[in-house]
């Protein structure tokens, strides 16, 4: 769908569904994933369909992902951080017991 107009200058690495993705420092998670060819960001809880970013400005919530330690977040509003672990959003949050 998308490609980078310019080569990555300051690489940042993070995990998406266990796979390492290299992106540009300062990218939104959505930009980094789209550049890496990811289209399926979340599964809609109501009809189990695949969804991906629509608006890119925080309005539609179609870009929801699960960030380890933070929970459901909008990929178009959060920026990549070296070493972070991101998963596609399952639709229903799977809660974990707090230590």
């Amino acid at each position: 769908m998308f490609r980078r107009g310019q080569e990555i200058a300051n690489p940042v690495r993070f995990k998406f569904n266990g796979q390492t993705i290299t992106s540009e420092d300062g990218d939104t998670i959505a930009a980094a994933l789209l550049a890496a060819g990811v289209t399926h960001f979340r599964t809609a809880p109501e009809d189990a369909s695949n969804r991906g970013p629509l608006c890119m400005i925080g309005n539609c919530f179609e870009c929801l992902v699960d960030i380890k330690g933070k929970g459901s977040r909008q990929a178009c509003r959060e920026r990549v951080v070296e070493g972070m672990s991101v998963r596609s959003h399952p639709g229903l949050v799977v809660p974990k017991a707090q230590p």
């Binding site: 990218d27 930009a31 629509l54 890119m56």
Partner: peptide, 18 residues
């Protein structure tokens, strides 16, 4: 997935050079 706003694509362009 793959249907987006033009403004959305432009945002990716401005913000990330995509």
């Amino acid at each position: 997935p793959g249907v987006m706003g033009i403004g959305a694509a432009q945002t990716l362009f401005k913000d990330a050079g995509l």
